[in-house]
């Protein structure tokens, strides 16, 4: 195993390119909260590791679009008054991350995105906010809507030599709401709902976040039920915490609560 503690984005990209050219599947480490323990347990068999810790990609810039680097932690998001004002949805989501002060200091939004786990807070929120990922490799940069990057549980549309350098999120000042259902402080989120304007995005019901358009704010539950019932069986999500039937039963309520919060925030 080789580990590169890249000192710049370029160094990281070079290391990635070399590893990918050799046919390996390099592991990129942002916060490390998911992939480091997986490597230690041997679940993630990494020939090459590229750790971004020293790349300085931890900047958070707030303009009409909020730009945040791969290393920006939940705590940075929570502490930023500008994010709080201009992306209250992101602020609220980050404030509810479990694992204590430590995980909020260590976990990153980009890491959560690249992990592509249905049982995560960030995904539905990023999709709801129409965030874009800045995808870079030694041969160039592209931007991709987050929703397009997410393929299936644990899988993203990233080539072996690509990494996500940061996110661009348009400001979204008003009328958003976020609700997550989890079973105990230790548990992963089970069902999440991020409400924005005319849609609610659900996490934890399918392999990837589900965008449910809301023709009217009164019809939230019905819209969610219709959407879920139309989900092909193979996309329905269940894990140890709860079977699909449970998620199907609670999701309309979680969505309705998120929409209610959004109404209040108008």
């Amino acid at each position: 195993m080789t580990t590169t503690f890249a000192r710049s984005l370029d160094e990281a990209l070079t290391a990635l390119a070399e590893s990918a050219a050799a046919g390996a599947k390099p592991v990129v480490v942002s916060g490390g909260t998911l992939c480091v323990p997986a490597m230690v347990r041997g679940e993630l068999d990494a020939a090459d590791v590229v750790d971004l810790g020293r790349t300085g990609l931890n900047t958070l810039a707030v303009g009409s679009v909020i730009e945040l680097g791969a290393l920006v932690s939940y705590q940075q998001v929570i502490s930023s008054p500008r994010v709080r004002a201009e992306l209250p949805l992101l602020h609220r989501m980050a404030s509810g991350i479990t694992g204590g002060i430590q995980i909020r200091n260590q976990g990153t939004l980009v890491g959560a995105l690249c992990a592509a786990r249905p049982q995560s807070d960030a995904l539905a929120v990023l999709v709801a906010l129409q965030a874009e990922a800045v995808v870079v490799s030694a041969s160039g940069t592209r931007t991709a809507p987050v929703a397009d990057l997410l393929v299936s549980p644990g899988t993203t549309h990233l080539a072996a030599d690509e990494l996500v350098a940061g996110l661009r999120i348009p400001a979204c000042l008003h009328g958003t709401g976020y609700v997550k259902l989890k079973f105990a402080e230790s548990s992963w989120p089970v069902v999440t709902a991020a409400a924005v304007q005319d849609r609610v995005v659900l996490g934890g019901v399918a392999g990837t976040p589900q965008v449910v358009p809301l023709p009217s704010r009164r019809e939230v539950r019905a819209a969610v039920v219709d959407h879920l019932d139309a989900l092909p069986t193979e996309h329905r999500w269940a894990d140890l915490r709860a079977p699909w039937a449970y998620r199907r039963r609670v999701a309309p309520e979680i969505a309705a609560r998120a929409v209610e919060l959004a109404e209040e925030a108008r």
């Binding site: 079973f183 105990a184 402080e185 230790s186 548990s187 992963w188 140890l240």
Partner: peptide, 26 residues
């Protein structure tokens, strides 16, 4: 309310970390 050692249909432990075995936090 939350602590349970669950196994799958082949007898493999599913609750093998504190993220599945939910011990109370503060």
């Amino acid at each position: 309310l939350s602590e349970e050692s669950r196994f799958d249909a082949r007898g493999v432990l599913q609750a093998s970390s504190f993220k599945e075995y939910l011990a109370p936090r503060a």
